[in-house]
């Protein structure tokens, strides 16, 4: 445990020296503040913030994750010669990057929300949006780690895959769903679209945002499965559970690759 905190602390120091994380936090600070100033405040701001979050956090998380693996190559290889368990090293690296990223997002967005008084007004929605951002950061940093470890020597390939995966998950996946919906339009599709959307963490987060802000529209669709799913706590619980699964799988597979890898 001592070693773990030590690694995290040294990571943190080097990150602070780089100032990138600070910049990342400041971007969210400026963005949220501008949204609040010009967007009228209230639910609109949180919705705009969640749109930005759904698009950029996955990209930034993955890029940071993979970049981190590449940058700290010498550091990792040095530490591996020391009597430190690979588990500890992995968690140290992982938390050392994801905790600062997460806090940069949460603090950067939260401060303007507090000084504009939205946080007090709408605690539930704020916590949901920021919490989702935090979870997405965790998921995509670990995805970045997995990719970085998989393409350890071929950086171009690693970055290429990162961009392609982001593009697919953030944008193209929904196009695919839409295509399937039109293709299979003659069949009852309620269950199908719910399950398919649950397979993508960005869609999962989007569904949770929808459940918070658009429930009145969702109730307008007359499908019984839809209504039961979204109209009760069932929808939130399932989506949250799936997010946890999405959190665990890349983390675990990253750990697996890291422990078995011949550096």
């Amino acid at each position: 445990m001592n070693k773990l905190t030590h690694i995290i602390r040294s990571e943190l120091k080097s990150l602070m020296r780089g100032k990138w994380v600070m910049g990342y936090g400041l971007i969210f600070l400026a963005l949220t503040d501008v949204l609040l100033r010009f967007g009228g405040g209230g639910p609109e701001t949180l919705l705009s913030l969640s749109n930005v979050m759904l698009l950029f956090i996955p990209l930034v998380g993955m890029i940071y994750g993979i970049l981190y693996i590449y940058q700290s190559r010498e550091f990792v290889e040095l530490l591996l010669t020391q009597p430190i368990a690979r588990n500890t090293l992995y968690w140290g690296l992982y938390l050392g990057i994801s905790i600062p990223l997460m806090s940069a997002f949460v603090i950067g967005s939260l401060l303007p929300l507090i000084w504009h008084g939205i946080f007090v007004l709408d605690v539930g929605s704020t916590v949901l949006v920021l919490g989702l951002g935090a979870v997405l950061t965790l998921i995509f940093v670990s995805l970045g780690f997995v990719l970085g470890l998989a393409f350890y020597d071929d950086r171009i390939k690693g970055f290429g895959f990162t961009i392609v995966i982001w593009l697919f998950m953030a944008i193209l996946y929904d196009g695919l769903i839409l295509f399937l919906v039109f293709l299979l339009g003659d069949y009852p599709l309620d269950k199908f679209v719910i399950i398919v959307s649950m397979l993508n963490p960005i869609d999962l987060a989007r569904i949770m945002v929808m459940l918070e802000f658009d429930i009145s529209a969702l109730m307008g669709y007359t499908g019984a499965v839809f209504n039961r799913f979204f109209g009760s706590s069932y929808g939130v619980i399932t989506a949250a559970a799936m997010l946890v699964v999405w959190l665990v799988i890349p983390m675990w597979s990253g750990l697996n690759v890291f422990s078995k890898k011949d550096f």
Binding site: L189, R206, A217
Partner: peptide, 20 residues
């Protein structure tokens, strides 16, 4: 217009693809 034709597509509300 899309959900007028395919109501199940409602699940894509607020998605980036739809926004584009």
């Amino acid at each position: 217009v899309i959900i007028e034709k395919q109501p199940a597509a409602l699940i894509l509300l607020r998605s980036m693809f739809i926004r584009l």
